[in-house]
Design a protein around this nucleic acid. Structure first.
Lengths: 196, 196, 196, 196
DNA sequence: CATGAATGAGCATTCATTCAT
DNA sequence: TATGAATGAATGCTCATTCAT
């Protein structure tokens, strides 16, 4: 990746080490889990020493945290946007659409979060993540609606996340599946809204 | 504990060590994750030595496997039952009802599976679990139905799992929430069926 | 050392590993300092693995702590004894005699304490050691005596410690030097007492 | 600090970095020990990079060496002075007085030497320090005096060092305590002289 | 049925040091 | 005068596992 021609290329990179660490780390974290990914592996894949990682990040957890902050920002912005909108059905639907799109962009990270909850829960990002989900859920559901309608909203939200991997079971083009998942989610939100 | 009189009782238990190991292991696995739970911790909580664990189980993974086999059996039976039934809407609905009940009984194990996917994937049970989900999904959805209806079925299934933890966000009695989740899941299956 | 014949002797030891760890650790701690002595070195010298050390001691600090507790016990007993005696000159003198003897027996440990104060200060034994010195000093000096007499007592005490190494400067038989140091210390205590 | 007016002052210092490194290093070495003080800490406290330290000093040990040379010089001069004097009691007493004063000025360094002997012993300054103590001791004691008198002299010398910290045990004004320590030391030297 | 003792492999982290810029 | 980026070596520690008793 990196379509522009680079000159030299024996090492070919300079200030991009931090970024490259993040890339490799995310890939390995998502693939093999946080605990099972050792800094040695990350370093080896980058052809640097472990100590080099420590020049750029204070701890292993810090690498993950940085990924979460960098890639999760769009969601925070979406949350901010949602808070300012009127609580109409249209807003909720638009929220879902944007959420699906944002999720899609940072798919590996969210797949990671999904698949490593037990680990993440004990890390500092655990709470941040939970808070975000909580906030999102509150933008969608009405606290005094029937329980089933509230469940519908949470399920809608959650199924978008799930779409990242649970839909493996179904064959088909990933983008088509994402759209189908969004459609179902929108339906759920709409039904919840009508139910009121 | 133990209302029947026992004589001697320096430690008060006899052939139940294997069971006790499973109990403690499941509790810790679910709470802190598989990787982060060490055999030392399990042994300490049981007040036996690590070596004792190895008398009952060949490896750490073996403990998990045994849990999966013991607690997952009802699901296999449900699967067998489902395969013999006609593929009607009623069957599917009943399948969901029974699935929800089965899940509920082995909640800690399934919470564990949910939260440790990355780890589980690399273990022998990973494939078994995946196969089971796959089989279940195939009992619910029709391969030539529209994508969105297929997604509805998978989401239904998945939302039951999710109910185990994603609904923390909503306050309310756990049993009520489980019922609400089941209701939504049944709805989804029904809609998928109608859509056809 | 070890005058009794042992049979076999390919490994020749069984339950004595803990003791052997302490011996080697004390030797190395005293010789090269606490920080500069690594667990690898200790293990290598014992021809066991590092992990074996951890079977017997929870941490590196714990090894030191155990040494301190085992070897320092006589001093605690001396302290207890001293507390029960009348505060006469004779008591103080006897205290010094016994202190000198006790010190002599655990010489390597006290040489270590002397030479690694900066390190020890940050360890849990730092406070224990300090408290002990404090208690000892309080048995010797009278709080309302002239400052110089109080200094005399502390110096007496301290010079016994010092004898462990500061007297290297003087050639002569170690036992003679110890006795000479004790003589000077007794003198100081006596002078302090007379001064009152 | 710095009474002369300076203009601009973006960082407020210019050629004094070397000095500032020494100051901070001595402070940290004395407080936390040589081994446990890392160059990172020193650099951080100075708000420069580690590499900057290497511009001013070849190695970590070199920083310590420079401190020792700069602050220990008065003692070397005192030693030279002592060597030229007649070996009278008055000379010895004056030696003690000046030694006490010199020690007092470079207190942190000597406290450091005292508390890090195990470390220092393996460093190049170890020998230098030892030689100096040796020379000093030889100016005070007579080689053919009774052992106890020789011990008295060494103890006198040593107790001045000790005064730097062992007297914490006693409350009182530091300067008063220093004077009391000197008084005791003078006494010891005098007694040793009389004994002859 | 279980323990005491040990191992080998691995891990996250830290450190003094180097060097091109 | 300094820094940014990196290294190589080490460290304390933990873990799953083994095996004789």
């Amino acid at each position: 990746m990196g379509s522009t021609a680079r000159e030299g290329e024996p090492k070919a990179r300079r200030g991009d080490t931090r970024q490259r660490i993040q890339d490799v780390a995310l890939e390995l974290f998502a693939e093999r889990g946080y605990e099972k990914t050792s800094l040695r592996e990350i370093a080896e894949q980058l052809e640097v020493t472990k100590a080099a990682l420590y020049y750029h990040f204070k701890t292993k957890e810090d690498i993950l945290l940085s990924l979460f902050q960098d890639l999760g920002q769009p969601l925070d912005e979406l949350l901010a946007w949602g808070t300012e909108q009127p609580r109409t059905l249209e807003t909720k639907q638009e929220l879902m659409r944007r959420y699906s799109a944002a999720l899609n962009k940072a798919a590996p990270l969210f797949r990671f979060m999904q698949e490593n909850q037990a680990t993440v829960r004990e890390l500092s990002i655990g709470q941040i993540f939970k808070d975000r989900m909580f906030a999102m859920s509150h933008l969608l559901r009405e606290p005094d609606a029937p329980l089933s309608d509230q469940v519908r909203c949470v399920t809608a939200l959650f199924s978008l996340h799930a779409g990242l991997w649970a839909l493996q079971t179904i064959e088909g083009d990933p983008e088509d599946k994402r759209k189908a998942a969004l459609e179902v989610a929108l339906d759920l939100v709409t039904q919840a809204h009508m139910g009121q």
